[in-house]
Design a protein around this nucleic acid. Structure first.
Lengths: 334, 334
DNA sequence: TTGTAGGCGTTATCAC
DNA sequence: GTGATAACGCCTACAA
């Protein structure tokens, strides 16, 4: 007896009913200790493993969270996932990870799949090209709660966990100001993401507080590609009164920006300071680092997102207003 | 009608039997086109999504592959996973990823979970501390085929996909020799991993071919931690006739090694050459790069491992001998 | 071409 | 304390 043992097999061998065995295994109150003992013993001997597929089917719960992210190559998400796994584990939940590779079609396919598989909840960082939200509405209509991580749509119509972008922006800009910079550029994220707007706003507000006029020439939208970032840097450095500091949407963009200066304006390198969102492990290995990084605490974001999701799963709400959680950033000086 | 539509609902509405609906949806041959059309139409209108949980349960297949790896922070695995997803997708299989964080207990728990969830196959890179193989035997006894990726046990008793370590070693050592190095050290991986032994053997063979005597003083075992690597470097650089080149088990170890030299012997930096396994994306951002990297083609390893696994799933063998696939490495000079 | 019936493994309800 | 039975959603012989 080695493969596919079921409670039925156990029941037959022990001359009892399947329901007794089932109850014994789940330590039900009104099963005698002797019976429980006998059942457990045989289950162990026979290496019984409950068929989760059947159990999920029966309970119409999968005890699984779906996590949809753009790309695992981005260490931000890896840390966040670790946070999600932490919480999920505590609730005996599985985590299933899927990558959209920033492709909305792939993303849609993934979501459909998650619905088919009846995951109990979803944590998602939408792709940079996702512009419609009906899929997510559909998820919620199917009784599957969703929490947006870091990126979200313009209107906060969904639960979300994001960095406290406004505060982070002022941390960064203030520090650059302290260092003597007065011409500070912003490499902003794709306009389609609400995060980009929040960070742009943070930039503007921080400048205003410092009585620096916002200069449209110092603003460039990037799309995370190396080419776009290089192009933006080329243009920015050509401006009459060029920027000496850069406030950047994301670590990987900072790195490309630094690379650009290194290649095309090596003399400028010591004069230029860059601060971006994200303090990723790989920064440790860099020789030319950003001046500072905004630690987004993505692990903690993962924790918070998963906790919120578990709460939503266990207390299905009628139609409460969406929750927004902001995680503070710290400025890490390198 | 918005939530949890089943074929039963559709059948009732259309006044037909569930089996007709089921067949219509799966495009069975002997269902009239008209019927198929009517069913599909309503299914679409009602936003019917098949309940995979039920389907899996019924077919006692999950159409899911389990991938167990040490850590997603390692870009090697991220690329490999991409390969796995590629193949899995073609077969309409899901991929579920789990991290052991190099902890054998966590690894065991993951495997048990995968068995409970009746995954159809498993691809695993064992943790650096895993020393027993009975769990994997148990998987195979449960009819769940396993493919080992990169790391494996001493005896090749399991299917595995690894780098062609012997050839890679000679590529690296030969190149270092060409550059004039005669004192070449090896930072070897944990002795528990067969990969470590293969790479050590590659090192010895390559030296032999070049008529360089193997010097035990130039060999150090590391465990991937920064401390161990730094300690190894400290010791190696104290040897009478110290090494001028290093053949390294793994990219992240190379980076720590470079960091050590940078901090403690900056003058040596230009004189020392390092070549390690792995050509990870992050290398692009480094200023002080290894002299060269052995591109392990981990994406391709993922592809091959998944293809092999799918074959094993679809043609369950009696007890054929395990398959070993070797993927050639290329030397990438930076 | 369509319908009927049984079953996959588990749990919950109710009866004994 | 224990057992019989129905049910979850889907698939598939087999019957009509």
């Amino acid at each position: 007896m080695k493969k596919g043992v079921t409670i039925k097999d156990i029941a037959k061998k022990l001359n009892m009913s399947v329901s007794t065995v089932s109850k014994a295994l789940s330590n039900h109150a009104n099963i005698s200790d002797l019976t429980k003992e006998r059942v457990r013993r045989l289950a162990k001997d026979w290496n019984y493993v409950p068929n989760e597929a059947a159990r999920h089917f029966k309970q119409s719960k999968s005890f699984t969270l779906g996590v949809v992210i753009p790309d695992l190559i981005d260490q931000f998400f890896v840390a966040a996932i670790r946070g999600v796994e932490e919480i999920a584990g505590k609730h005996k939940y599985q985590v299933i990870i899927a990558q959209s590779h920033e492709d909305p079609d792939k993303e849609e396919q993934i979501i459909k799949n998650l619905i088919s598989n009846r995951v109990d909840g979803v944590i998602i960082t939408i792709s940079k090209n996702t512009n419609k939200s009906d899929l997510f509405t559909q998820l919620e209509q199917n009784g599957i709660p969703v929490v947006f991580l870091t990126r979200s749509f313009g209107q906060p119509i969904f639960n979300n966990v994001t960095a406290d972008n406004i505060h982070a922006g002022s941390l960064a800009i203030d520090y650059l100001y302290q260092l003597g910079h007065r011409r500070i550029a912003h490499l902003m994220g794709p306009k389609i993401l609400s995060t980009s707007h929040q960070r742009l706003e943070a930039y503007k507000k921080a400048l205003e507080k410092l009585k620096i006029d916002f200069d449209l020439q110092l603003l460039r939208e990037i799309d995370f590609s190396e080419e776009k970032t290089h192009q933006a840097m080329r243009e920015l450095l050509k401006v009459k009164n060029p920027p000496t500091a850069f406030f950047v949407f994301k670590t990987y963009v900072s790195l490309d920006a630094i690379n650009y200066v290194k290649i095309h304006h090596p003399k400028l390198l010591p004069k230029i300071d860059i601060i971006g969102f994200g303090n990723l492990p790989l920064i440790k290995y860099l020789d030319i680092k950003p001046k500072a990084s905004l630690e987004e605490n993505s692990y903690e974001m993962g924790l918070k997102a998963a906790s919120l999701l578990m709460k939503l799963i266990n207390n299905p709400t009628g139609s409460e207003p969406p929750v927004s959680i902001k995680i503070p950033c710290e400025l890490i000086i390198h």
